[in-house]
Design a binder for these strands. Structure first.
Length: 354
DNA sequence: GATACGTGGCA
DNA sequence: TTGCCAAGTAT
């Protein structure tokens, strides 16, 4: 149980602002309604992990139309789920999403646990998502701390400790300003504030409802908070990808290993990605190498993928597991962005050859 | 605690 | 153009 402290003014000011200016988002119940659907709250929170609202909206719409309930999602085929997630990134989320739906359907009768502890035990639900679902879907006074809340709280209290070491301090401060009632609205209001007013760069302090509560506002540079440690430089890697097209308009696609980078996703056959990758093609054939490699930036390295193209007769197949995929349906293959771009480059080249 | 894990928008 | 950053989780 939280003790009502000296910071209740902050929650009051923020909720008053939220009642007037809350963003209308597809996963939010309409104003005045308290009918937040735990399935939709959970799905949106998983999609929003490290991902912008603008990127999530079309995926959320597509998923809820195709799979309206957690039981429906639990019945999805792995390949269909992964293909539907393609392009959104962090594909472990999609694998855990399906695992979580199946646990909820099989072990909880299709009803999400309502407590942080119960939610935290499910695949893909960490401290943040457990607190967010408990607060937003079930009205519990959970302390919800995401990157927005970290930034807002670091500024409200002008916390000088650099991230990530400041996490415990920030979490304690967040707990002190979280209200006993309307904790879900409070959490969403903090995130709205962080996304639209208390932004990482050039915060709009002039229209901020918490301006008079904010210690950073009284400093010369509010945007200097939160303090962050310098990041390590991102290494660069090289790789090779092979576009194997058959005379009847199909391309050879493989599925990547279940774990690791782009785990479980359809892909072009490719080499390892390293400073000096093995460039041996998967089969002996006449290869054309595209002049411009596909440049792609992952979180922890950047990549130049050199794309090689060949055309095979009908009676030749590459070694190993894979599938011939019709070229006119390449958009439905669910290729992650790197391979979608490689496919676009290869098909453009093939058209020029024809 | 540190690292692996995608992608796109913005300055 | 290049770097920063985003409703984090798993190991």
């Amino acid at each position: 149980m939280r003790v009502e402290g000296t910071h209740t003014k902050i929650a009051g000011d923020l909720l008053a602002h939220y009642d007037l200016h809350a963003r209308r988002l597809p996963w939010r119940a309409p104003p005045g309604s308290n009918a937040a659907d735990p399935y939709r709250v959970w799905l949106s929170e998983v999609m929003l992990q490290q991902t912008t609202v603008a990127a999530v909206i079309p995926y959320f719409t597509k998923f809820t139309e195709r799979w309206p309930t957690v039981d429906a999602l639990a019945g999805a085929q792995d390949a269909d789920l992964m293909a539907a997630w393609a392009g959104l990134g962090y594909y472990a989320r999609a694998r855990n999403l399906l695992a979580c739906a199946r646990v909820v359907a099989a072990d909880h009768g299709g009803a999400f646990p309502s407590t942080e502890e119960g939610l935290r035990a499910l695949p893909g639900i960490g401290d943040y998502t457990a607190a967010a679902v408990a607060a937003i879907a079930f009205g519990h006074s959970a302390v919800v701390v995401d990157a927005n809340v970290e930034r807002v709280v670091a500024r409200l209290f002008a916390i000088e400790t650099p991230l990530p070491a400041a996490r415990p301090e920030i979490r304690a401060a967040a707990g002190r300003i979280t209200p006993d009632s309307r904790a879900g609205d409070f959490a969403q209001a903090m995130m709205d504030l962080g996304a639209t007013i208390c932004t990482p760069r050039n915060p709009a302090c002039g229209i901020c409802p918490l301006r008079e509560d904010c210690a950073a506002f009284r400093t010369a540079d509010p945007a200097a908070f939160p303090v962050r440690l310098a990041k390590k430089p991102r290494p660069h890697r090289l790789g090779h990808g092979w576009w194997i097209e058959r005379a009847d308009g199909h391309v050879w696609l493989v599925r990547r290993p279940a774990k690791g980078l782009l785990g479980g996703m359809r892909a072009l056959p490719s080499s390892d990605w390293s400073a000096a990758p093995d460039a041996a093609p998967p089969l002996a054939a006449g290869w054309t190498t595209l002049a411009d490699p596909v440049a792609h930036v992952f979180t922890h390295f950047s990549l130049n993928l050199t794309v090689h193209v060949t055309h095979l007769p009908l009676d030749v197949a590459p070694p190993g597991d894979g599938e011939w995929w019709p070229l006119e349906q390449i958009a439905e293959a669910g290729l992650p962005t790197l391979f979608r771009r490689a496919a676009e480059a290869a098909m453009k080249e093939s058209r020029q050859d024809a």
